[in-house]
Design a protein around this nucleic acid. Structure first.
Lengths: 209, 209
DNA sequence: AGATTTACCTAGCGATCGCTACAGAAAAAC
DNA sequence: GTTTTTCTGTAGCGATCGCTAGGTAAATCT
């Protein structure tokens, strides 16, 4: 058996044969997420992981595959939870401008939340990484995020909500750089109010202010 | 002999006894700088270093001390060369605003220069680092840079070159976040013109524009 | 009950990490 | 020349890396 796939837990009543797992998979995954978030992919060793997850190495490999696969799942979970505020802001606000404003405001709060490591996992966890695949995985997510912002801005330009001459690409890249800069600032000890002031300032670059 | 200090090379004519070094120390140091710049402190192994520097491990330890000491020296060299443009811009331009504008413009060029790794060594090389001292070393340099910008802005406010209500701390932090964001963008593949557009946009936040 | 299936624990694999002991080689000092 | 000093190359130290074989424990199935 070489596949580490976990096909159980399909609804609660679906029982399985064999000895049941002695730990909660989701809880252990969350612990792994926190460790990767705090120290990054390479600097988090498998023995670090087994310690914070409270399980042995064979259990980790049986439940999550290898370290790389576990990290992939962690990134997926992160993108759908702590990292989902950017997509939500773009989708739920009526204009690109309001979406970006909310995105930056929420980033200030999220990146300095004392309940978890500071900054953004997708920005930092694969920096200085020996594995090019892992580095590329997060880089692509960062660039995709900027592309999504650009598309949202373009839509507003097309709808006449923004001036026709608006440089959507530059505006989107600026937003991405601000997010990444705020994440770095949060890691370097900036407080929430300071990042909120940053977000406020950053919004003044938008057309007709 | 436990001290790895190098007390030779005190002026060119000062000869020394014993077998002379078979490599140029400054050249080897520059190679180490490029390696650390590209892959960061931890991801650059000693065997990586000996390979790119073209010397054996004992020669490296004799000439530079241990890996950590070599990195310290690399950071010092970087700060005095590729990383000196920020201090130069603040010192040589007549106003804080002009200094920051030049700083961001030069960052766009420097961070995308094809002659060396992209982005800023001080921003990235100690991210996800097992050694807290190394991480702190670069973090302190980043924060000191922002403090220097803030001091330059304060001086202009005091001199009446900027409005009395100017929030120097927020303006300085914004500049720092932009620099760090631009460095990340450069690492993620942004081209020079794109970063220059970013710098242009970033300057529109300054008072009375 | 016995058989089967799955998970856990101990122990350790080969590879790499940062680093160094040791002996030979190349220069100056005598 | 011989001695002294310093550098270089080989070879390998102990520690940690990601990962797994093998035996035992705990559940279901017949």
């Amino acid at each position: 058996m070489t596949t580490g796939q976990d096909t159980r837990a399909q609804g609660g009543t679906g029982r399985t044969r064999g000895r049941p797992r002695s730990f909660d998979r989701a809880t252990a995954l969350e612990k792994a997420l926190m460790a990767f978030w705090e120290h990054g992919y390479e600097a988090t060793s498998v023995s670090d992981l087994t310690r914070v997850m409270g399980i042995g190495a064979p259990s980790l490999y049986a439940a999550f595959g290898d370290k790389r696969t576990l990290f992939d799942e962690v990134v997926r979970v992160y993108a759908g939870s702590h990292g989902a505020f950017t997509d939500r802001a773009l989708a739920e606000e009526p204009t690109a401008r309001a979406g970006v404003a909310r995105m930056l405001r929420e980033a200030a709060a999220e990146y300095t939340d004392p309940a978890h490591p500071h900054g953004c996992l997708i920005v930092h966890a694969a920096t200085n990484c020996t594995s090019p695949e892992v580095e590329t995985l997060l880089r692509d997510m960062r660039n995709a995020n900027i592309t999504a912002i650009e598309a949202r801005i373009r839509a507003d330009v097309a709808a006449g909500l923004l001036p026709a001459g608006t440089d959507a690409a530059a505006l989107a890249r600026h937003t991405g750089a601000m997010i990444q800069g705020m994440s770095q600032q949060a890691r370097d000890g900036a407080r929430r109010e300071e990042l909120e002031a940053l977000a406020e300032i950053a919004m003044t670059i938008w057309p007709h202010d």
